[in-house]
Amino acid sequence: MKTENQKAWFLVLPVLILVAFSAVIPLMTVVNYSVQDTFGNNQFFWAGLAWFDDMLHSERMWNALGRQIVFSSIILAIEVPLGVLVARNMPKKGVWASVCLVLMALPLLIPWNVVGTIWQIFGRVDIGLLGYTLDALGVDYNYTQGFYAAWATVIVMDVWHWTSLVALLAYAGLQSIPDAYYQAAKIDQASRWSVFRYIELPKMRGVLTIAILLRFMDSFKIYTEPFVLTGGGPGNATTFLSIDLVKMALGQFDLGPAAAFSLMYFLVIMVISYVFYIVMTNLDKEEGGE
């Protein structure tokens, strides 16, 4: 009896086709665009690495990247500690635990563009509760014109939308700590801070790594909310990488540079995520956490 044949390929084929259509072909199309130039009529000319070179020397891209890094750093610096703080103060069991969980999950259920719209109206000086109140209090607040007002609104909006994710993950991490740890710490006369530093933080390390990675990747790709809220303005104040990319690709139809830009964007996210991951898992080993 022949025990070897090639039939197994048929089992793998559906996956190969699916991955090809959903990932490989679109990605290769982008790669294709990034090394060619077109003047319409489906005529393409080889451009080599010219677009990449262009983009690397584009002040516009460097500015957008700078804004993006500042934005993601601020987001992480606020959302991670705040999420942990919220998680630590949520009730551990009973009816209120469920109520809190549902309330915390609510912002996560709202679509991005709706969040943008909510804050766009909320922040308006004429009809928005927030804008009107601030204006009435004498604060010079107008997110469509003021640089700081626009940034503050985008950041607060993101914190409002996504802190829940960090809080829920941290909460799950905290729930997995057996009560005996807290009892043992109590018997040792450990302070609240020691309990956090030496029990809760090491035990939450795994979920926090995931939370930080998710929040980094997501905030680095942010598009819809600031697009709906400020459209990238005032001026270019809140034009983050994705917004700039869409302007270039669809607004100006500069497909070549936009494709080169996308690939570099993708690489930047991958590299930074990888660095984050390596640093955090190494910390893990040093600290002996789980």
Binding site: A180, Y181, Q183, A184, Y198, I199, P202
Partner: peptide, 11 residues
């Protein structure tokens, strides 16, 4: 007190 679970400071 010593518990059934092994309770030590992990870090």
């Amino acid at each position: 007190m010593v518990y059934q679970q092994f309770i030590n400071y992990p870090s």
